[in-house]
């Protein structure tokens, strides 16, 4: 096993193409758990911490480009937090300060867990994922990037370079149900936006289906929206909760989120 630490995106992509067995690692908050517990033994690790192109975020004429290495702690900082408020709220619920300082959006997309907390807030903003390889760059709607529990559309020679999103400016919020405030995997989570400009309601749930799912309706459908979201989810029974509880909780959360964002 080896560790390679490229200093540019170009070098990272060349290494990725030459040796698809190298496992990318950013914050390591998912990868290291697997290594520490002998769950995975990749041929090597592709350390992305030294790649400047993956860091930070920029804004060009209303289009935000967020680097894959952006940490939850950075997502919580203004002015980004004012631009993507539900994402910032979600970041605050992730793990603990230690996890928020290391865990990244790119890593959350890479893991593609149904409980990934950054995913519902990005779905309600209709974010795209930027995928790079030596062949070039493509963007894919987040909805199409997420394929199943811990499965995504990343090709063997690709890296997640970042996220592209045009913030809607809609009032929005994120909510998460779990046994306590810190350090919980969501039993169920919800991001919701009331978009007056587009007369649209957008909700995305987490931990209530094989992938986080987006549900939309017109603002005229406020009364039936909680039921619509609960019906669209495909929760299962597991250690953390039952399918019936999850559906119920989702209905309640949508009602509360609508109240919070309606004004």
């Amino acid at each position: 096993m080896e560790v390679v630490s490229p200093r540019t995106l170009e070098e990272a992509l060349r290494l990725r193409a030459a040796e698809p067995g190298l496992m990318p690692i950013e914050g390591g908050t998912d990868v290291m758990v697997d290594l520490n517990f002998d769950r995975r033994r990749p041929v090597g690790l592709l350390n992305l911490n030294e790649v400047p192109e993956l860091r930070g975020w920029s804004r060009d004429d209303g289009l935000l480009r967020i680097g894959a290495s952006l940490t939850y702690a950075q997502v919580r900082q203004r002015p980004l937090a004012d631009t993507l408020p539900a994402l910032a709220e979600a970041a605050r619920t992730v793990g603990s300060p230690q996890i928020q300082n290391r865990g990244t959006l790119g890593g959350n997309l890479g893991t593609a867990s149904p409980a990934g907390d950054s995913l519902p807030p990005l779905l309600i903003e209709r974010a795209d994922v930027e995928l790079a390889s030596v062949r070039g760059v493509r963007t894919l709607a987040l909805e199409r990037f997420l394929l199943g529990p811990k499965r995504n559309a990343l090709a063997a020679d690709e890296l997640i370079a970042g996220i592209r999103v045009r913030p809607s400016g809609a009032r929005q919020t994120f909510m998460k149900v779990g046994p306590r405030n810190a350090m919980v995997i969501a039993v169920v989570s919800l991001a919701l936006a009331v978009d007056r400009e587009r007369e649209e309601l957008r909700a995305a749930y987490g931990s209530a289906g094989p992938v986080p799912g987006l549900v939309t309706a017109s603002t005229g459908e406020r009364e039936t929206f909680p039921e619509l979201v609960a019906a669209a989810a495909e929760p299962i029974d597991d250690l953390r909760g039952t399918a019936a509880y999850r559906r119920h909780a989702l209905r309640v959360l949508v009602g509360r989120a609508l109240e919070r964002c309606w004004a």
Binding site: V3, S5, I25, G27, G28, T29, V31, M32, V33, L35, N36, L45, N47, N49, P97, Q98, I99, N101, R102
Partner: peptide, 11 residues
């Protein structure tokens, strides 16, 4: 502040 158990030493 980070958890040393989640940082790859080489990182």
């Amino acid at each position: 502040l980070v958890c040393a158990c989640l940082v790859l030493a080489a990182q």
